[in-house]
Design a protein around this nucleic acid. Structure first.
Lengths: 344, 344
DNA sequence: TGTTAGCACTCTCAACCATCGAGTGCTAAT
DNA sequence: ATTAGCACTCGATGGTTGAGAGTGCTAACA
């Protein structure tokens, strides 16, 4: 069977209506609201065809139709008209950059908040992934007692700080020399390149305090391992309650529990790192708990280095056109902002 | 009317039963389960008295009784037997300290997780409050381009880092000198003592780069203002779904929305800073949204300086004896651990 | 006088049933 | 090919009913 023009029109009408109402859509409704000069009976025939083709289904015999994931896929790829942002939305998004903070984590936090505020969906943003950035500076700072703070500054302005123990007989001059040496050695390398071999080289020069030096290396490698698991920022998790399909307490619980598991969210989002906006619909998703949700996401970057991922999660009947346009806009402007901050 | 011994026994039985069942308790139940050689009829009479005195109430005429907040108060203050931690619980709590991390935020994060895991309630932990700690070291670290990182190390091992702009003509030697000067000036002072007057003093010595120096001062004072609002760590927010009284979607939503508002949680917890465990029951609470919840909380400290607050939030019929013992134990051991780390 | 058995009464809850309405599929007419 | 008409299905709604849990009251009892 062919997907003729009229079938497409009807399909679009069903999707549009279902997205905003959440109720199964009947032939009469289509005829009345989206009337295109054909009677309900004709629409019924077409809908019956669409059902056979897998684009619609009925929750029970005497109910209207609901779009399938396949229908949403078609909708997102072909039917949907990309919607412009309203002036108010663009204005609201600008807030992110007006604080002019140079701390990338703060920016990301704002992004999560703004995304969920504007769309009323749940937002997820992955913090910058360390393996993509360059080391710019390494510094050991003495702290009260026998501790020192290991600070690594990167091209993305990210700071990883770890506290390490320092032998009593080491003075701050020595710490400075170590810092300079490390900086010289690892400047403009990625964390992935901080391997043990190159560390051996440095180590030769530092036999004097071998034990201490080892602990610095430990802290450095550990800090890499730890940051492999990036921070996950959430926004508007309780927005899910706005959707009638989550009136069911068990569903709401499943959703929120999933959102609490940061590692799942991480692996969910981190797997898509191509530019542009990616939409994952319902069962296309590999996690059982997300089979009734869709994700609209994009990446953000500094220059052309992809740093992380941001996205919106909502029911499959989400307003894709709004979600896509907002996500795209925020992704692009954040990238621009971060690039202007850290790349000159 | 007097609260005789038998009335107390009955009251305790009602509370115990209601805490674990969540269902109104009838006279028969009491007679059977907690049988103290009296008949249901007698118990009914006593319960009627207890109701008159405000300790019990009935949701409707032909239902069992439910303890009032006043009853819980009495229970917590007088009736409750403090329960010992089980070996497994104590073992589980030890996990917090075994990573031997010296980063206080990491410890706090663990505390939130462990508290909610053990008790199945929602845990809230306020991060360390900066106004209680002493400045130990201030350092400006050059970053790629025209930025520097302002790091403040305190007696609690807390690091506040802010990125500030640096004029192009400033070299790292100069940054070091500024750092040393600031450190010398503010060492062992609290953030509250970093007032503008004393900054004027320093400023005199730094006329050379007045503009730059101002931005450092700005960052410092701003970092104080910002950290006034401490981080709030949450654990087990979805545990609330385990309680039948939160089957109602609106209640669950109200609860979770409240938990999303970190500033409310902050003002809720930060107001109690006396040592020992504090229990706030239902309507004793000043926030409308918390009127059906109880909070069990304590403080944690380094030495005798109180740093922050940790607590458990659950329905008023929470297992106070368990909550109190766990919170007390965790609070004490965390304080010990932090003290051993940072105070010598 | 305090305690208890007995009983009538109240109230909730779950099950049941009838009804309503939205929506369909089919058929026959256009 | 389209459409009007109609019988049919199924979920939602609302009212009724009976069971069960629990009470308060009264009268008998130790």
């Amino acid at each position: 069977m062919q997907l003729g023009k009229r079938k497409l029109q009807i399909l679009q009408a069903v999707i549009d209506d279902y997205i905003c109402s959440g109720e199964p859509v009947g032939s009469r409704t289509i005829a009345k609201k989206y009337g295109m000069g054909i009677s309900p009976a004709t629409i019924r025939n077409e809908m019956s065809d669409l059902e056979e083709m897998g684009y619609l289904h009925q929750p029970h015999t005497s109910a209207g139709r609901i779009p399938s994931d396949k229908a949403y896929r078609l909708y997102v790829d072909k039917l949907m008209k990309i919607r412009m942002l309203t002036a108010a939305e663009a204005e609201y998004i600008k807030n992110i950059y007006e604080q002019r903070t140079a701390e990338i984590e703060k920016v990301i936090e704002q992004v999560a908040r703004v995304l969920s505020d504007i769309t009323n969906y749940t937002s997820v943003v992955l913090g910058p992934q360390l393996n993509k950035v360059l080391i710019k500076h390494i510094q050991l700072i003495p702290v009260e007692g026998q501790y020192a703070l290991l600070v690594v500054v990167t091209s993305a302005g990210i700071i990883k700080d770890t506290i390490i123990r320092v032998p009593a007989d080491i003075d701050s001059g020595y710490l400075n020399r170590v810092s300079n040496m490390l900086t010289e050695h690892y400047r403009d390398k990625t964390f992935a390149e901080v391997d043990l071999n190159s560390i051996q080289d440095v180590q030769k020069e530092m036999i004097r305090q071998k034990e201490f030096f080892n602990s610095v290396v430990d802290a450095l490698t550990e800090s890499i391992a730890q940051k492999e698991q990036t921070e996950v920022y959430l926004g508007g998790t309780t927005n899910i309650f706005n959707f009638p399909e989550y009136r069911d307490i068990m569903k709401a619980k499943a959703f929120l529990s999933f959102m609490e598991q940061k590692n799942l969210l991480y692996s969910l989002l981190s797997k898509f790192d191509k530019k542009g906006v990616t939409v994952v619909i319902g069962t296309e998703n590999e996690y059982e708990q997300m089979k009734e949700c869709s994700i609209v996401m994009t990446t953000y970057s500094i220059g052309d280095k992809v740093l992380g991922t941001m996205g919106l999660i909502g029911p499959t009947r989400m307003e894709y056109s709004k979600a896509v346009s907002v996500v795209r806009y925020v992704g692009e402007t954040v990238s621009k902002y971060l690039t202007s901050l850290f790349e000159e």
